[in-house]
Design a protein around this nucleic acid. Sequence first.
DNA 1: CAGTCAGCCTTACGCTGTAAGGCGTTTCGG
DNA 2: CCGAAACGCCTTACAGCGTAAGGCTGACTG
Lengths: 248, 248
Amino acid sequence: MPRTKARAPREPLSRERIEEAALALIEREGNEGFSMRKLAEDLGCRAMSLYHYFPSLAHLRDALLDRLVSATRLPPASLPWQERLRQVAYGYREAALRHPRFFQFVVVHRMNTAAGLAYLESILGIFRDAGFDAETSARLFRALGYYIAGAALDEAAGYSRGPSAAVPVPDAVAARDYPLITAVNPYFRPAEREQTFAMGLEIMLAGIARIHGETAAAGSWEPASANFVPADTKPAGRRSRSSRSPSR
Amino acid sequence: MPRTKARAPREPLSRERIEEAALALIEREGNEGFSMRKLAEDLGCRAMSLYHYFPSLAHLRDALLDRLVSATRLPPASLPWQERLRQVAYGYREAALRHPRFFQFVVVHRMNTAAGLAYLESILGIFRDAGFDAETSARLFRALGYYIAGAALDEAAGYSRGPSAAVPVPDAVAARDYPLITAVNPYFRPAEREQTFAMGLEIMLAGIARIHGETAAAGSWEPASANFVPADTKPAGRRSRSSRSPSR
DNA sequence: CAGTCAGCCTTACGCTGTAAGGCGTTTCGG
DNA sequence: CCGAAACGCCTTACAGCGTAAGGCTGACTG
């Protein structure tokens, strides 16, 4: 039978299988060590076979991002708004720590897929439900997001990131030249991170609550402008919806 | 004179020149578009010539990080500690916005070179000068850093990041399906960012000031433990100080 | 039975970082 | 003044990368 190659029997590919294997590979080898060829090897196929399911690596990564976002916990709307915000923060943190290495990719990319926008929309809903007007909602949403993203990034990095410096400072030198860093170092250990995260989060929530007390309860959410204004580009220069991502 | 090749006369290479060209190239083409070959072309040499000055791309990037950190503004110690913290935040933000694309690399890497540690040490000094004990300093330093890093990342990304999604949601669909995002979008524009940053920063600073009022003024800074405990690894498994960085 | 399609394959191209080693010029010790 | 070493930059080569182009096989459909 030289005609038909004896194909090794294995589970057929699927977007689901590929995404799971990709996440596993990224957590194993990091974002840099990830490649289509290695992913294919894990799946028992060749790299080009993956292109049948994802048109490019960028598309695959966006699918992973969507998958992570979709799996991120959101609190029930029945809770008080402060508690809802708190749980959003912890939910985001959990998602980051579940995939620490992939999260380093997530945090430098926009969330403008459907799942990402839905996630952001529901968080904005918490601010609206609390009675903040659109402008204050926008700013507090952003500010709280800064804290949460920064914290998640650092924590995820702490569990996954290798040494940055090619020539790191030896510990003995650090202890001599950087006494303050040395002194606070015990509180930088992983076991301390949740408490540190909580401390900063409560500062943010308390500040938000204080502003809530100062502003009128039912702010304006009428569309401030009829046009959808892209956040980061001049209104004219919006990119087309090409299915190819040219920049990666 | 067939013996000596007519070498195009140009300024000789140096670490200084290479670093400047590298930063310029990164800001022009992004971290992904950066390569040793393109950098060499900008400098009028070949890629391998750069290895005479930097043993690897990772070493070059670390040098760039050091350069950015060293150029980051730090406030004079004569100011009140609240103002010092505020200026640290603005200084960090400025540094990020000066090199927005490279900053996306910075934020996912450790700052454990000499310049990085010195920077962190002097910020910790502000907390100590304010009278915080070591533990509170550690946590507030971290929490404030989370906010600042998250904000800087988002702002830098906003100025430099292309569309993340390979298949982004069209604006018309966004306006229909995500009314809250659409409503707050005017406040996400670049012109609004400084004000949003300030709002969140003042929340953090007010929270820190409140904690300052609650804790004893002269906390303990005696070394909590004689050993320098690495922040992110088990005490046993510290990496050697090899001059090669294997993980990138 | 022919046609179409899904699913997976091979081949090839231009790009990457960098290991290994060469060659002309400058600098320096004897 | 001369031989040797060091410096500054080079060429060549290799393994790995994403992916464009197209081929083969088996199943399903008209």
